[in-house]
Simulated scan of single mutants.
Amino acid sequence: MASKRVFISATDTEAGKTWVTASAIRALLKEGNRAIALKPVACGLDDHGRNEDIDALLAAQGLTDPDQISLYRYALPAAPSQAAAAEGATIDADKLVEWCESQSADVDTCLIEGVGGLMVPITDSWLVSGWVEAMPDAEIWLVVGCKLGAINQTLLTLEKLKQMGRTPSRIFFNATKAEQNDWLNPTLRSVKPFLNKHCEVHTLKFTEEVALGS
Rank of each mutant, 00 (worst) to 15 (best):
D137V: 08
L142D: 05
W131Y: 14
Q153M: 15
G130M: 00
M135Y: 06
G165Q: 03
V115T: 12
L142C: 10
V128P: 01
L127A: 10
D124I: 04
R166P: 03
V115N: 07
S129H: 01
M119G: 01
M164S: 12
D124L: 10
R166V: 05
L158V: 03
L158F: 10
G117P: 00
G149P: 01
I151G: 08
A138Y: 06
P121F: 08
C146V: 00
S125T: 07
W141V: 06
F173G: 02
V132I: 15
T157W: 01
E133P: 02
L127G: 02
K160A: 15
K162C: 01
G145R: 02
C146Q: 06
A150H: 00
E139F: 01
E139I: 01
I122Q: 09
S169I: 00
S125F: 02
M135K: 13
W126I: 03
V128Y: 04
T157H: 05
L161Q: 11
K160L: 15
T123E: 05
M135C: 13
I140G: 09
L118I: 07
G165V: 10
T167M: 14
G130A: 08
G130I: 00
M164N: 09
V143D: 03
L155R: 10
L156Y: 11
E133K: 13
K162N: 05
F172W: 13
G165L: 11
L118P: 00
A150K: 00
G145K: 02
F173Q: 12
W126T: 04
I171C: 12
G116P: 01
L161I: 10
Q163S: 14
I171Y: 11
G130Y: 07
I112K: 11
N152E: 09
Q163F: 13
V132W: 12
W131E: 02
T154P: 02
W126G: 03
P121A: 09
A138C: 10
V132T: 02
V128E: 01
T123R: 09
D137H: 07
T123H: 08
R166H: 13
L111C: 08
K162S: 06
M135Q: 15
T123F: 08
W141T: 01
D137C: 04
L156D: 07
W131M: 14
M164E: 12
L148R: 14
W126V: 06
G116C: 08
P168M: 05
T123I: 03
V120Y: 11
Q163V: 14
R166I: 01
R170P: 05
A138R: 00
W141E: 09
